[in-house]
Amino acid sequence: MSTTIDHTGAQHGHDSHSSTGAFVPLEYSDPDNAIKIFGFWLFLAADMVLFACLFATFIVLRTHIANGPDAQHLFDVKGFIEETFILLTSSFTGGMATFFMRHRRVKGTVAWLTVTALLGMAFVGLEITEFVHDVGIGATMQTSAFLSAFFTLVGTHGLHVSIGIAWMISIIVQLIRYGITPATARKVFIVNLYWHFLDVVWVFIFTVVYIMGVIHA
């Protein structure tokens, strides 16, 4: 998204091997891209804190159900198990896209990214279905503090996933247009960092929100 300045002022080489002959992935081959990857890691650290705050809010308010339903009566076990396996699989396919990108195989990269985005859409579709169902039985954000926190935490994750899908599509377009260059390689790498991160967040959502909600007897 932005441009970095290198120290040397020299033109960047685009070859994938450093002077010592060791393997350097394309996305790390020039300092511009390497620093963007680092900057994105820092963003993920911040995003982690954002989710921590939402988790803290949810945990504090999870028993405040007022006149609304509690977790046990609301959550559909089959639904969240499906969502979980879809997202875990998409994390794997995203990892495969990085693998193919590192081997400079543009078709494979595009294919795996497409599968990942489709799995992401399936996940978001299931989540929307779940939310629509909840709202249909009168369990809305306005019903209770528990539901406000639930919809916000899970919805924020869903929003992240949706943004990730749009982002992936734009990268697929760029891959088809420009092939695997240092810039597109970096974009593939970063969008997958984001995607794996969202997978980790989901692991905590299914653990803390869904499982703990269902088994609290």
Binding site: L61, H64, M141, A145, A149
Partner: peptide, 20 residues
């Protein structure tokens, strides 16, 4: 969260409906 409370009528920080 406060904005959601204010414009969408959620109950994070209200007195009613279990907000804190």
């Amino acid at each position: 969260l406060l904005l959601i409370d204010r414009i969408a009528g959620a109950h994070f920080f209200t007195i009613a409906a279990g907000g804190n």
